[in-house]
Amino acid sequence: MVEAINLALDHAMKKDPDVVLLGEDIGVNGGVFRATQGLRDKYGLKRVMDTPLAETLIAGISVGMAAQGLKPVAEIQFMGFIFPAMEQLICHAARMRNRTRGRLTSPMVVRAPFGGGIHAPEHHSESTEALFAHIPGLRVVIPSSPVRAYGLLRSAINEPDPVLFLEPKRIYRAVKQEVSENTALLPLDKCFTLKEGNDLTLISWGASVSETLQASKTLEQYGVSVEVIDVATIKPLDMETILTSVRKTGRCVIIHEACRSFGVGAEIAAEIACEALMDLKAPIERVTGYDTTMPYYRMEDHYLPQPDDIIKASLKTLAYH
């Protein structure tokens, strides 16, 4: 995935001279995870800019650049460091179109590695996507594979409004797929049906899609026909795809590694209950992280949803009559 992101940035910069990159250590070092490696040498200091350790500055400069016709792609080193940038993202980037009655927009992307699973210290493993999904005017996109990372990032850069592009870092180098300049751009605001089935719908996004797919294979060995949906864009939600699947299967499990309370999974469950209650054959199950700070590495696997957790919740909903 990290190489797919590098390719997406490279191809976008080659196609459009208005695309510029900025962030901490993204130039000389290529970023902590090397997502921008080699791009400064290729495009120069004016288009790949190392910044001070100042997230407020990074977001604020991006808003100004975007308002004046550039297409900045800013990197926040870890999602746990994004909070100083929230004032700029929420009060300015997300409101620019509304504030100027459409005269100005914010064609900017903010990239941030997020989620647990790499044995990182404090503030390096947060999954706080729900905070930003609550903000009108701000898209929140989360890829789950190299092909989707490439296609969604290219589309995000082309978007005239701000996009928060969250990259699940524990699968940066865990999944391999063929990606090239000819790889298709993918639509934002759409879920992807990764596997079709009739008995049960599994819904997830980001790194947890990997465990969800693993669980689906085991369930199929039990004779269960499983449909797997990758939400991909959590704001705005493509509820049409989700509702179509749940109306077909009648049973649903939602999986995410963020805290359980007030999360995106709760919003999806509420929408299903509102729009497809009479199609449900069992209560909706959620497999999530806990309402605690992400623990240090010894407890990470206990915190993160595992395939066995998903299988257990799936069997529970399948057994309900």
Rank of each mutant, 00 (worst) to 15 (best):
Q77R: 08
H92I: 09
M79I: 12
Q88S: 15
L57I: 10
M65Y: 06
R101H: 14
V63Q: 05
A54H: 02
T56Y: 07
V63C: 12
A67R: 05
P52W: 06
F83E: 09
H92A: 10
P84H: 08
F83D: 13
I82D: 03
I76F: 13
E87I: 14
G69I: 09
R101L: 15
M86L: 13
V63R: 01
L57K: 00
A67S: 13
K71G: 07
L57F: 14
N98E: 14
Q88E: 12
P72D: 13
R95H: 02
P84A: 11
M96D: 06
R101S: 14
M49I: 15
C91T: 14
L70V: 07
A85P: 00
E75S: 06
S62L: 09
P72Y: 10
R47L: 05
N98F: 14
E87M: 09
A67L: 07
A85L: 08
R97A: 09
P72V: 08
L104A: 14
G64F: 04
Q88W: 02
E55R: 02
Q77E: 11
F81C: 11
I76N: 06
G69S: 12
F81V: 08
P107I: 08
T51Q: 04
A66S: 10
S106K: 02
A59K: 01
L89Q: 02
I76A: 07
L70M: 15
R101I: 09
E75K: 08
C91F: 05
M65C: 05
I76V: 15
E87K: 05
E55K: 03
G60Q: 04
I82T: 09
A67M: 14
A67E: 07
I61Q: 03
R103K: 15
G69R: 06
P52R: 04
M86D: 03
I58F: 04
L104H: 11
R103L: 15
E87F: 07
Q77K: 07
S62H: 02
P84T: 09
I76P: 01
P84S: 11
A74I: 04
A59C: 12
R95Q: 15
A67C: 06
R103W: 06
Q77I: 07
I90L: 12
E75L: 10
L104Y: 14
A59D: 01
L57D: 00
F83P: 01
